[in-house]
Design a binder for these strands. Structure first.
Lengths: 190, 190
DNA sequence: CGATTTTTTGAATCATATCAACGTACGTGG
DNA sequence: CCACGTACGTTGATATGATTCAAAAAATCG
């Protein structure tokens, strides 16, 4: 049984004891080493990963051969390449552990079987997607309506602890500017 | 019966004749005049709108009192403020028709009832959210990895017809730059 | 047709990138 | 456990893409 995940699901839908057991039977617990990849560009994404412990990033390599971070994956959140999953096509991105991590994999083929047995999960995942969509839309709003400096300060205010956890250049990449610029922002008195 | 929507649903899940009828019974057809709003900031979003005909935009007013377009809604696509719907909170944005339009409203309270009667719809909406999420994530990739000019040319190549349908300054807003800059891009020889 | 909305153009300015060099920290093998 | 190499962070000078403000020109609408 995986209490972290079951607790998370419990916030959105109600599962019986038996359903909880069925859910856990369809998952695979994976220990991931720092810097290890769960997904590499070119592969079809195996399924959805629930982060029990640790911190992951999803990124792609752009035309200038720079890494561009699309998203971070933290405790009690899902991470996957939904595009690759939905269309069963090779991914364009990478998912990598930034710290030693523990994740639960819900393999895509198990997902389909599981959703038939526990239909509430369809609802749970619909809500997860809705939340992810809203968050991403909001991020676009920030990108367009705030300067890089504002966005940086906003992020630091919201997630000061998280910023400590990752190298600065990764945060710069996520926020959409260069590490040099970020260094200047930090140097600047507020 | 609303064939456009039923066709669309049919691409993702299978509904019986009777289920199709039930779905349509929970919808409200609305004729929307040009410039009319389906949602105003401060209101709780009424539900999901399926665009049968016409073109809508979802936008917010930023700190500098400029309109920032978050998304367009075209034929055979859904538009709504998911944040407002999910959390039943007042919206921060507007949804407005750019042309005389015809939309189907699935009111939020009907949605819940309907999903119980036709569980495949939960799956259908899960997929809609997943598609929307992927599209928005991809948009962030474009914003970070392409210059404004590249993004403009990319958009024009993908959706030349759509670009004709809306004022330039709205496309500029969607792409994240000023109308003046867009005018200069157009003036420039390719 | 006049009124409003949308697009264009010019000049000045600003935010951020780029390139390059140097400083620091950190983890890995000897 | 130290030393070395690599990864990460800082700083300065210069370049550039995009914004701003202002005004005129063009298109659209009732």
């Amino acid at each position: 049984m995986y209490p972290e995940l079951l607790d998370h699901i419990g916030k959105y839908v109600t599962l019986s004891q038996q359903e909880q057991t069925v859910v856990c039977q369809h998952l695979e617990l994976k220990q991931v080493k720092k810097k290890q990849h769960l997904l590499q560009a070119g592969q079809v994404c195996q399924g959805n990963y629930f982060v029990v412990k640790g911190c992951l990033r999803q990124y792609l390599i752009n035309d200038k051969l720079n890494e561009q971070i699309i998203q971070f994956g933290l405790e009690n959140w899902w991470i996957a390449d939904q595009d690759s999953l939905l269309n069963q096509k090779p991914s364009q991105c990478y998912i990598q552990a930034l710290e030693p991590a523990e994740v639960l994999l819900l393999p895509e083929k198990n997902r389909k079987i599981l959703f038939e047995q526990v239909p509430q999960l369809e609802s749970y995942f619909r809500i997860m997607m809705q939340i992810a969509f809203v968050a991403t839309q909001r991020r676009i709003g920030f990108i367009f309506n705030m300067s890089d400096e504002e966005r940086y300060r906003h992020f630091m205010k919201l997630y000061p602890a998280f910023a400590q956890r990752i190298p600065q250049y990764m945060l710069a990449s996520y926020l959409g500017f260069t590490p040099q610029f970020m260094s200047r922002l930090r140097a600047k008195k507020v």
